[in-house]
Design a protein around this nucleic acid. Structure first.
Length: 410
DNA sequence: AACCGAGACAACCGCCAGATT
DNA sequence: GAATCTGGCGGTTGTCTCGGT
């Protein structure tokens, strides 16, 4: 059966509300409270549809409704949330005190949509530089990436004019052989292809079993752009075909491993979120903006966006490590090295060995896993894809050389 | 002064999910 | 379990304002 209308429309007033109507509605709700919208107009003496009364109250008359010009920060939040959530106005409104979904929607359509179209959200690139930067960055075919995500890197080459880039400063000049993969050998202590062995409980019901670690080469070069359940774009490093990352269960796995790793001092994870909680949070479309302490190593709710202390820098993080995009890469690679060692330990039957990461086992000058935040640059999503593609970011040979010299307490 | 178009924004509409009868 | 109600959401429309001609 069809739904009946909320009230009889014949004879009811429509259009703009008058000050007198507002007063009647406000006084009635103050005396009787919200709700019972169907019966409200009749009881209050208003010739309005109950639905209209509800909208008028929620959007304009409610005392906690914030009116007036949107601040810069509010605009910023809207643009960034919209970039990841789309037209989920009520969810966006939940992050702006006193602003209604209707107001935000109108503001977006009349003010912000064109600006956002002109200045896409990119991490840590000032708007005034955005156009300049974007002119030099290879385009990413999202549709193609979505369809083909299990078949390897999805980064498209830029056109010829994009192959040399002198601006902005953090972008590298592209070498002549930029299309060639960096030749490399899997170093010790890595095995070329490992097995997860008997690590328990990481396979959840209904998931495909993953029986091998990704090849180290793929770990460094195979980067996929994807979207999480909230529609937010993020980058996957390494685990392209891995059900753990794809389905959000990487968290469970990493948690299990990290729980076996003794962090030293400040590197102890302050917060952890299980994969299931993460999935649930995303299903609830919660944009869980939180401050990020980039000196911490943690498996966190990193599918969600994070905002830095100055409320200006947002991270789009993989399902693994948090921090800047670059740092995320490094941390994930670091953890991957631990995973390899963990696997070896598991296979060898040694389940009590304490692994002490980076600062004590690698010399800082040569460590590829430097976690000092002050030494880590920040990169935009576009930059990291650009640089990763052309081998400029990961400095593979340097890292691998350092790993060869690695002499940890294993 | 009149007209016109664009922009801004208030309001409405249809649909949906969950609650209630 | 079906019918109905209710509140919420996002898309769309209608109206007003303002600047340009």
């Amino acid at each position: 059966m069809g739904r009946t209308p909320c009230c009889e429309k014949v004879g009811l007033k429509r259009g703009r509300w008058t000050a007198k109507e507002d007063e009647i509605l406000t006084n009635y709700i103050r005396a009787n409270g919200e709700g019972s919208w169907r019966s409200l107009p009749k009881n209050a003496g208003l010739l309005r549809c109950g639905k209209s009364c509800r909208l008028r109250w929620i959007n304009y008359l409610r005392p906690d409704v914030k009116r007036g010009k949107f601040s810069f920060d509010e605009e910023d939040v809207i643009i960034r949330l919209h970039a990841s959530l789309g037209n989920r106005w009520s969810t966006i409104a939940g992050h702006l005190d006193g602003r209604t979904d209707n107001e935000i929607k109108n503001y977006w359509n009349s003010h912000l949509s064109r600006r956002a179209e002109r200045f896409p959200v990119t991490d840590q690139i000032e708007q005034k530089d955005a156009l300049l930067v974007m002119d030099h960055i290879p385009k990413v075919d999202l549709k193609h990436a979505k369809k083909q995500r299990s078949k390897g890197p999805k980064i498209l080459l830029g056109d010829k004019k994009n192959k040399v880039c002198n601006s902005p400063p953090r972008l590298l000049e592209v070498p002549e052989n930029c299309n060639e993969k960096v030749p490399m050998e899997p170093p010790t202590p890595f095995s070329e292809e490992g097995s997860f062995g008997d690590i328990p409980m990481w396979i959840d019901e209904g998931l495909t079993q993953c029986t091998s670690l990704p090849h180290q080469h793929d770990l460094c070069t195979n980067i996929v752009q994807d979207e999480d359940l909230a529609g937010e774009t993020f980058l996957d490093f390494g685990f392209d075909d891995n059900v753990l990352i794809d389905d959000g269960f990487e968290m469970d796995f990493l948690n299990k491993v990290l729980n076996d790793v003794a962090f030293n001092g400040q590197d102890t994870a302050p917060e952890t979120t299980t994969g299931n909680e993460l999935v649930e949070a995303n299903q609830n479309l919660e944009m869980n903006a939180k401050l990020v302490n980039s000196s911490s190593v943690t498996s966190s709710s990193s599918f969600v966006s994070k905002v830095s202390e100055d409320n200006r820098q947002w991270d789009y993080s993989d399902g693994g490590m948090l921090g800047d995009v670059l740092w995320d890469t490094e941390q994930e690679r670091m953890v991957m090295s631990w995973l390899c060692k963990y696997q070896e330990l598991k296979n060898s039957g040694n389940k009590s060995t304490v692994v002490t990461p980076q600062t004590k086992t690698c010399a800082p000058s040569t460590s590829p896993f430097n976690t000092d935040p002050s030494s880590i640059e920040s990169y935009s999503l576009d930059e990291i894809m650009y640089r990763s593609h052309f081998g400029g970011l990961l400095d593979v040979e340097h890292d691998m050389e350092a790993l060869r010299k690695f002499d940890g307490p294993y």
